[in-house]
Design a protein around this nucleic acid. Sequence first.
DNA 1: TTGACATACTTAGAAGTTCTATGTATATTG
DNA 2: CAATATACATAGAACTTCTAAGTATGTCAA
Lengths: 114, 114
Amino acid sequence: MKHLSKELVGASSIPIILSILSQKESYGYEIIQKVKEISDNELVWVEGSLYPVLHKLEKRGYIVSDWKVSESGRKRKYYSLKDAGKEVLDQEKINWNFINQIMTKLWNTEPNLI
Amino acid sequence: MKHLSKELVGASSIPIILSILSQKESYGYEIIQKVKEISDNELVWVEGSLYPVLHKLEKRGYIVSDWKVSESGRKRKYYSLKDAGKEVLDQEKINWNFINQIMTKLWNTEPNLI
DNA sequence: TTGACATACTTAGAAGTTCTATGTATATTG
DNA sequence: CAATATACATAGAACTTCTAAGTATGTCAA
């Protein structure tokens, strides 16, 4: 199981969450499962880290939530992306790719790589 | 000029600095110039953000500094990478690439690596 | 000679973030 | 019926980033 710096967690959690919600609405526990699945069980978020971020995104107006009841009777808080959130996601993508290009320049210029 | 979230700045500044120092020792002002150059003038760090990170890296034992005098007489604090810093850089690369793969899966973009 | 500018480094504190730990609630399973 | 999984919540300790302001000094044009 991967241990990431909290800086990298901080930089990636919002784009990851917004990306997952851009595909379809989801609830907290399912988002954690999705992240685990996407990362081949390497990345395991805990609720105590996820929910404050969801709350923050909702407070900023990027996502919105509503309670639903599942087939089994469980209450679930579903989150969905708002237009503002899509715009933020687009910007996060641009910025992430921009930094990634810088990393590529730095890391692929080492001698004897090509 | 690019405006990045402070989370992304936080996640990228250490690997960028350590990468620059893995090529050759450098001093603060030059690192800022190097970052500007690598990013095609899109990323402009300010000293007030850079030096606290340099101090932190030194305190953690990843880099070491020593004062030198340039040809023009200016005092410069040169930083160089220690073995511990190289190890951290290697781990940062792995982690960054790991998260980048996740972003790629989510965004379906071609990874810009190697 | 002088002032503006570039070079070079420093740091305090406001504002914000992450993680841990702990909590409540309830359906499922053995 | 107890353990586990599912589902959401939050306080506070520890930490981070940025802004702003600072000191210092070499260069350059007027």
